[in-house]
């Protein structure tokens, strides 16, 4: 059962009609087939029109779509011999960041992927994709492991943000994020980061300072959630749509600002309508980006990352 977003109402209505027609056993099958084809054409046109000009707020909803492919889906499809590695060696294991070793297109690598979960049980297990300090400390441990064995790192970002809770603060959430940023920037190996859904502020950038940073076409990446920004600056979370526009959180805006390197086009109607194809396309892009990076020395990779981030903010929109 597909979940439809508010703005997809007309599309949902048409698709429901198509379903209905398909289930109509009748004598004049030909006419029904024709009608279905006609409606499908209409749906596609509507999808194309709607998704060609999604507002920032609509993109937020697409990026948060419950059926959007998540970190674990990418790992399952792209990484062979995936071997999860758990724990930060000082407090615990945090399933909001899945980490491990595996083989990407034959190349041994380290993978760090934020995972939100897809039903109640898995959402609770992965804490809705909101990492705690131990998640970031595990990331640091695996980044160091990657450095020791000269393995490239693939990071997949999808989080509303780092978990804002009492224990997370008690165990030093801020320090854990700062150390993760530090470790990413210091790693003597290639890092390719891709925002596959939500890039929620510090919780996202902690593992997103790659040599290459990509975004899916309808993913978002922001310093604060539109709701949070609205409640601070507009003093009402009802203005989340205004905040989403003002904050410039879309892949298209971030590319213009020089913050990301590439945008992966999504299937018509969003990644959730064809997870297989979007995951394959992300895989192709990562491979293309990793190949030249694998030829560089550790110091050059580090230098490239530094220059890339130090240059940011020189141009506005």
């Amino acid at each position: 059962m597909r979940t439809f977003l508010d703005f997809e109402k007309p599309i949902a209505d048409l698709e429901a009609k198509i379903e209905e027609l398909r289930h109509l056993a009748s004598d004049d099958t030909v006419n029904i087939a024709e009608e279905v084809a006609r409606l499908e054409g209409k749906v596609n046109k509507l999808l194309r029109q709607t998704f060609a000009k999604l507002t920032a707020w609509q993109k937020v909803q697409v990026a948060r779509h419950p059926q959007r492919p998540h970190g674990a889906d990418y790992i399952a499809a792209l990484i062979d011999d995936f071997t999860p590695l758990a724990g930060d060696r000082s407090f615990g294991e945090d399933a909001a960041i899945i980490g491990g070793l595996g083989r990407f297109r034959g190349q041994s690598c380290v993978v760090l992927a934020q995972e939100k979960g897809h039903d109640m049980a898995t959402r609770i297990k992965h804490n809705f994709g909101m990492p705690k300090p131990e998640g970031y400390r595990k990331a640091v441990r695996l980044l160091e492991l990657a450095g020791r064995f000269n393995l490239p790192v693939i990071t997949l970002i999808d989080t509303a943000g780092a978990y804002p809770g009492i224990e997370a603060e008690a165990r030093g959430q801020a320090e854990a994020i700062a150390r993760a940023i530090d470790a990413c920037l210091n790693a003597p190996v290639p890092i390719v980061s891709t925002i596959i859904g939500e890039g929620g502020s510090g919780g996202a950038i902690a593992i997103a300072t790659g040599n290459r940073v990509n975004m899916l076409e309808h993913s978002v990446y922001s310093v604060i959630s539109p709701e949070g920004c609205a409640s601070i600056l507009w003093r009402s979370s009802d203005n989340a749509q205004d905040a989403a526009e003002a904050l410039r959180i879309t892949a298209q805006d971030l590319e213009k600002l020089g913050v990301i390197d590439a945008i992966v086009p999504e299937p018509l109607g969003g990644a959730h309508r064809d997870p297989g194809s979007i995951i394959a396309d992300v895989g192709t892009l990562i491979e293309d980006q990793l190949r030249p990076l694998l030829l560089l020395e550790g110091a050059a990779l580090k230098q490239q990352r530094r220059e890339k981030f130090l240059e940011m903010g020189q141009k506005g929109l």
């Binding site: 940023i181 990413c184 510090g202 950038i205 300072t209 990446y221 310093v223 604060i224 981030f309 940011m312």
Partner: peptide
């Protein structure tokens, strides 16, 4: 914290200041 009015560019100051510390 980060200056919301500069959007993603304020978030990018986290790695930039980290590089300075390095």
């Amino acid at each position: 914290g980060a200056r919301m009015q500069e959007g993603i560019l304020s978030l990018m100051q986290l790695p930039r200041t980290t590089i300075a510390v390095q």
